[in-house]
Design a protein around this nucleic acid. Sequence first.
RNA 1: CGGGAUGUGGCUCAGUCUGGUAGAGCACUUGCUUCGGGAGUAAGGGGUCGGAGGUUCGAAUCCUCUCAUCCCGACCA
Length: 569
Amino acid sequence: MLFTKLLIPTLKENPSEADVVSHKLLMRAGFIRKLTSGVYSYLPLGLMTLRKIERIVREEMNAAGAQEVLLPMVQPADLWAESGRLQKYGPELLRFKDRHGRESCLGPTHEEVITDLVRNNIHSYRGLPVNLYQIQTKFRDEIRPRFGLMRGREFIMKDAYSFDATEAGADAAYEAMNKAYHQIFSRCGLQFRAVEADTGTIGGSFSHEFMVLADTGEDTIVICRQCSYAANLEKAACSAAPLSERREEKPLSKIETPGKRKVDAVCDFLKIAPQNLLKTMVYIADGRPVAVLLRGDHEVQTVKLKNMLGANEVELASDQECFDATGVPTGYLGPIGLKIPVVADLTVTTMQNFTTGANEKNFHYLNANLGRDFTVEKTADLRMITTTDHCPLCGGELELPRGIEVGHIFKLGTAYSEALNAKFLDSNGQEQPFIMGCYGIGVSRVMAAAIEQNHDKDGIVFPLPIAPFQVIILNLGFTDDAITTAATDLYQSLREKGIDTLLDDRDERPGSKFKDADLLGIPFRVTIGKRFSADGIVEIRDRKHGEITEVPFAEAREMLTKMLTEAII
RNA sequence: CGGGAUGUGGCUCAGUCUGGUAGAGCACUUGCUUCGGGAGUAAGGGGUCGGAGGUUCGAAUCCUCUCAUCCCGACCA
């Protein structure tokens, strides 16, 4: 394509609204423009990269035996009521009424629609297994969209759904997707890890997230330095170091701790380590208060708590809610004599003679002990893992790098098929619910994640497979017909070879062309200018390494073809 | 939803505290010079300062309300 024929509105300065590097560069390089919060237009270059990612996704999905469909974005609320998610999904589901007053919503995901489609059209095990996917715009009314394409409200997603007759078949479908995802993200040129994940609102029994490693990622993941263990924070299992020896339980005593509310303040005041303090956090779980006990230096992992309680919504109580529930000001709460349900993190069972709030303003207890002084309803792993923890598989050291979630695969089981009464007849003529799996890729997010991972001070450094163009030719001799002719000839011959080439034919000074070429991140840049006039030489520069290869004009095409082939392998 | 910040030509910002009728740089148009890492020069076009109301002789500037955007938190297939 010709630069002058494309809408590529590059910016010299970072837009004030952008904070993360992918957002800044996508705006500056003219890939996207914002319409409103969390909603973006894709300009020609942005769309080209998107299409390249989609193409890789399609090829791998098709190779894995999935079939492409396209499902509606506007969905009847009734269908969501059937699965129970009309209530459960919350305000993220954008709801509206049509002119007849029918309740509708914009699809944030498509389990309901696909299950409805399959239940109406597949009635026998003979029609199984089947895996259907689509690439489509999704809408989720996020509480807080941010970081450009990283967390938009409207975004492009590939979602696939598998339907199987047997558990073994469902496992195979999951494994096929797991493989396809590894292929897809590798082909996109990304550094990523698949991590064990919590199943969240979608429900189901087993899941992995595909995380692109980048410091600016919104999520923290847990990776073992020794073995292959990888999980996200919600899932990462914390073990409680067993008691080395049981010490003698000392008598409980109460001590005045005037104005000492925070863990640090109490510890300083009493000259104890936070490991010897038990802290009590009050949460509101589906409207009811619950006290959560933790060691002083630990933090609650809300998702673990939610799962333990089997609650839909769990939120830290405000100071007021806390006082209303317990009659004690926050800072002096403790389990002894507390009137609300109490649950504890596993580590608490290994603590002895610890300090804790006395449920009385300005007082704490010393030498409290679980069992003797109070009991709890349940104990479970409820805390956030840290780098001082050890790998639950091999005991090795852990790392907690940041990541961007670009894909997620779930084994759903029969949660949706049962809710929506989607059944088939098995070979014995028995009715069975479909066993399902669902598999998502944030296509537009992949573009942002790729940039987070591949950029430098001059701009984007695209991995070749997803760059909008493979080669950019700079015509630096705008007034020189020989140069212009050479640039145009090379451009034509590369295009004939099927190489995606952009010819910078603008009447701009060289400096601007160099800057823009760097900003756009096109992997190979061919400069035709002075050196061509003097010696018939053109320069090929590798965007990533900055290496310059000088070749005679006549050999440029062959050299580029060779470099592109090598770069792909 | 809680906390913080910002809205002034297309973009980045100054001017607001201390009211006096709108500026700079970039971008854009035209001419001349220039042409290998975001040129120089001259002449131009474009904004009633997010919106509404109020105070005042006079409001970008002060007051009230409102809308939008961004950041932190909670949240998140």
